[in-house]
Design a protein around this nucleic acid. Structure first.
Lengths: 210, 210
DNA sequence: TCTTTTTCATAATGATCGCTCGTAAATATC
DNA sequence: GATATTTACGAGCGATCATTATGAAAAAGA
């Protein structure tokens, strides 16, 4: 049984010859570029610069490595929830989510598109559980948005007949569409222009000042 | 060298023991469900009910089989072009494209989502040329839409400052987003509701009668 | 019936898959 | 230095990958 050293206290034995966090980031980018099942351990080994046994020793198996890369990609889920909850309005929350997606999907130093959306788009039945994690991530975002929209409705910012589920789905749909467009080569500017059109589907807010 | 019999004239030799078109349809659905690289020949062999050598004899190799399945999935490209060109307006062309996507992505007898969008979302460098075919398909649709939009602009149906490229990208983006939403389990009704919101981003037409 | 042509199923090709064993090397504590 | 512990790394595990060689079987024309 392997033991993950606490890193704050030096443990005996030969020290690890590579930076675990840097290796994880490289693995994330490799999965991002080529997908979960279509990235082999030997691909990862080559990209990370460490041999296969070292990968297994440090990260478990391929599935655990991908899930950890996925968590690194997603970032802190609580921060995301707070950002959506703390936005001035549901519309601004949506705009922020879309802007973040554009930045992530068209980054200069990372592969284009969404790691989760593209890397888990399809696959064998053996990877169904990993794909379910991806679906759960999208569902979580959609639920957060729907909740923020409903708050706007109950506070009178949005009309009472607003369909929060559909509106949240509009944002989620756009994010996923951005992933494919970005992978096809769309620029950030183009996606921002699309964002402006999409947000025209947003219900009129009861203007307070303007 | 194999010879694809013209089917109208009987050729000598043992007759094929399976329906080529039915086998192709089964292959299409299998690729649709599990993706291009993540579907193995043995998966296809099992699903199609024919042994591997028969697949190679009838369809060439895996790449050719997928490309043929892709063409079957897409349908007649000229029909698509004519449908978009023949629509009463660019907006109606967009609505038609989105409705078709919803029907295709949520069909009862086929896998959910888009064969091309999900089956080629990522993969190894060895399959880059096949992915490029998928991108080309999306680019073609977007170009057809942009052309139809520009016609509306030049005919005065849409405002002269309409950005045809962005508007076409909005539709393409929505189609691709629908693929992921459908795969995540979204109903056709939900996607139709999203369509209504998306089309609110469409520029106001100069109303002729109403 | 005999030859020709095509398809069939079995079995095997070399390569790669995810993963692990065994041993040498490098650090800690004693 | 001795011992314990951990990692590095070459080699190899069985399984599966896409693909094909082989030869029997089934049809046509002679």
């Amino acid at each position: 049984m392997k033991k993950t050293s606490p890193a704050n206290k030096r443990s005996p034995g030969r020290p690890r010859g590579f930076d675990r966090q840097a290796a994880l980031e490289t693995a994330m980018k490799t999965f991002w570029a080529h997908g979960y099942e279509t990235t082999s351990i030997s691909d990862l080994s080559r990209a990370m610069g460490i041999n296969a046994p070292a990968i297994y020793s440090a990260f478990g198996d391929k599935k655990q490595l991908f899930l950890e890369a996925m968590r690194l990609y997603r970032g802190d889920p609580q921060r995301q929830a707070e950002a959506i909850a703390g936005a001035a309005s549901a519309r601004e929350a949506a705009a922020m989510v879309l802007a973040n997606a554009i930045r992530t999907f068209t980054g200069k130093d990372t592969p284009k598109g969404c790691l989760v959306g593209t890397g888990l788009a399809t696959g064998s039945p053996a990877a169904a559980d990993v794909r379910a994690e991806g679906t759960a991530m999208r569902d979580t975002l959609e639920a957060l948005l729907a909740g923020r929209i409903e708050r706007d409705v109950s506070e009178g910012v949005l009309p009472p007949d607003t369909d929060a589920g559909t509106l949240a789905a509009l944002v989620s749909c756009t994010v996923q569409g951005f992933s494919t467009l970005a992978r096809d080569g769309a620029s950030a500017a183009k996606l921002h222009a699309v964002t402006d059109l999409v947000l025209q589907g947003w219900p009129k807010e009861k203007s307070s000042s303007v």
